[in-house]
Amino acid sequence: MSHRTKRWMLAGFAVVLVFVFLICLCVGRFYVPPLQTARILFNCLAEGIFHAPLEVTWNDSMESIILNVRFPRLLAAVLVGAGLSVSGAAYQGVFKNPLVSPDLLGVSAGATVGASLAILLGCASTLIQLSALAGGFLAVFITVSIPKLFRNNSSTMLVLAGIIIAGFMSSLQSLMKYIADPEVELSSIVFWTMGSLASIKMTDVLMVAPAMLAAFVAVIAMRWRVNLLSLGESEALSLGVHVSRVRGLLILCSTVLTACSVCMCGTIGWIGLVIPHFSRLIIGEDNRYMIPASVLLGASFMVIVDTFARNLTGSEIPLSIITGVLGTPVFIWLLKMQKVRVQ
């Protein structure tokens, strides 16, 4: 597959994402005719940029649904889907292992502990999110400090440290569940750990969007370096790559992406593992194309998953359940296609 073909494919994925986004914006329990949806969206642009609002043919409820309920949700889904996929892709390259997920260094476990603590203390949702961010960063910070303690900077040491910290965070999490009041807090914590975009507000999205966008840009800019890192530490070093610095930067960006994702919607599994594989299957293993592909495919996937979550049954299905149910057979199929070589 030539480079040109791959570039066209990326463009195709972008178009798919836009389509999926628009279609899912029209789908929901409260019926809004697609024409009105389009008009509401255009009106937003027309009013905001050109100061020339359209004629109002819709009612307040419709506008509220589209702009205040569905749009922030889908936007969050895009960021979360892309963020988790790119984190997974970056880690898989950095750690030379296609079976690695963004939770490798413990960011999800730490974020969950942070959120649970905030829920136990009765904090409002914004504080819960900040607490999740703090917990995620703290966990990764401890993880990357352990190799420094043992003065062994290899990636194996890093992975081991991640396992230790994730395990520790997991026990803390169990402790919190045990302390939690079963009437109110426990169900809150459990629902949070399964992932949901039900209560997302535009302000929540705007709080994390700048950091996430910066991280996206950084990882995409460094995507060729991921290729170099995937050759292994000593080879990359010999090619003049400052391995610990580049690896550190990639870990930082991935942590930002994953922590922000978790703080918006709780923990969601499988995406960071499956979407990069899927991208590899379609567009090849060169990170120059695989990483942007993961961004686009991950975003589309998450938008679709969230739409299922809020429309399949009467109540909201937690996102992790859908990604798990969809992700597991897809992963088995990918293994069967033997594009994943387990070494």
């Binding site: 929901g28 409260f30 409820s61 649904i65 309920v69 039900a198 009467g314 109540s315």
Partner: peptide, 21 residues
């Protein structure tokens, strides 16, 4: 008329509430 649940309280969706107005 919401889906009856044993607990008799539960979580609804934002779109439902907007719909009920």
């Amino acid at each position: 008329d919401y889906d009856a649940s044993v607990n008799s309280y539960g979580t609804v969706t934002m779109e439902d509430v907007i719909g009920w107005d």
